[in-house]
Design a protein around this nucleic acid. Sequence first.
DNA 1: TTCGATACTCACGTGTTGGTAAGCATCGAG
DNA 2: CTCGATGCTTACCAACACGTGAGTATCGAA
Lengths: 114, 114
Amino acid sequence: MTVNHRRGPYVCGIDAAMDVVSGKWKSLILWELNSHGTRRFGELKRGLPGVSEKMLVQHLREMEEDGLIHREVYREVPPKVEYSLTEQGSSLNQALGALGEWGTGRLARIAAED
Amino acid sequence: MTVNHRRGPYVCGIDAAMDVVSGKWKSLILWELNSHGTRRFGELKRGLPGVSEKMLVQHLREMEEDGLIHREVYREVPPKVEYSLTEQGSSLNQALGALGEWGTGRLARIAAED
DNA sequence: TTCGATACTCACGTGTTGGTAAGCATCGAG
DNA sequence: CTCGATGCTTACCAACACGTGAGTATCGAA
């Protein structure tokens, strides 16, 4: 019961994708890693204004477990950990492209309303 | 304060799109309406096994408010209400296509693991 | 006169999500 | 000998998402 907090029986592909992306900061993490290639924990934290350390860690762990990102630990002091996209993470990011464009259009529409 | 439960300040397009799609049944509602063109409340309910009436109503109202779907009421007895996609809803559905394919690929990968 | 069909609405409870604030381990610099 | 940097971990709590089960209005059929 501690595991299996994901992989609910999915109705369709969207379901499966949403499960992996849902989380307040996940799409932004994806974007951040996609833009910079490789980022340390602290860099991600600074790149996502408002994120709490707890959520950042939690999201990163889940995304690693889901095979979206790679976590590289350098045994140094002070510690250094680097995150990067896996191929799956990268392709997910691409798949989010169309959605992002739709959202951008929506933002423009909302702005035009005022 | 009763309104404005959405439209948080968005960081990017993905944010704005996710806001509109997040909800346990929303993408399925979109899909259902896309497949059938027009559906009555009861038909949607039967098409989404497990959905509660409360959530179905709530999601439909939010999606209407977000301009994704159109709600047509026929003043008859017993009542009849038809839902359909607006142009925005339809384009959102298209934008979700890539994500759906990614998810389908992921499902295949997961299935192959066993 | 009661019943069923339809499309809801409402009160309530529970599990999940996310934030806050504190603490931990290690090393070099001062 | 204390301090700061880094990457976490933990306990606690408030807000929210979602489900359950009941109730509502109207009319025709039985």
